[in-house]
Amino acid sequence: MSTVKVYLPELGEGIAKATISYWYAEEGATVVEGSDLVEVSTDKAVFNVPAPCSGTLTQVVAHEGEVVGVGAVLAMVEEDTVSDSEEEEV
């Protein structure tokens, strides 16, 4: 098992921060790679940050209403891994 950090990505020139506007999942929930994980807002745009991997959302670091900078850690996801025995079965 490995922990993957979810970052606020670069959103564009001159956009240094964004507000966490909505979490699609709560801590402990299962998330799927590529699905909406958290919505962030700038003045005139909302941007949906996807889950970077499939697994469990173990920690929400930045909560709704918080203003965060580009590159900030928003959450931790414990990545699902296929065990050696399962891999052999596949």
Partner: peptide
């Protein structure tokens, strides 16, 4: 261009 500012 992956840039919200640009698109606005």
């Amino acid at each position: 261009k992956k840039d919200l500012h640009f698109f606005l």
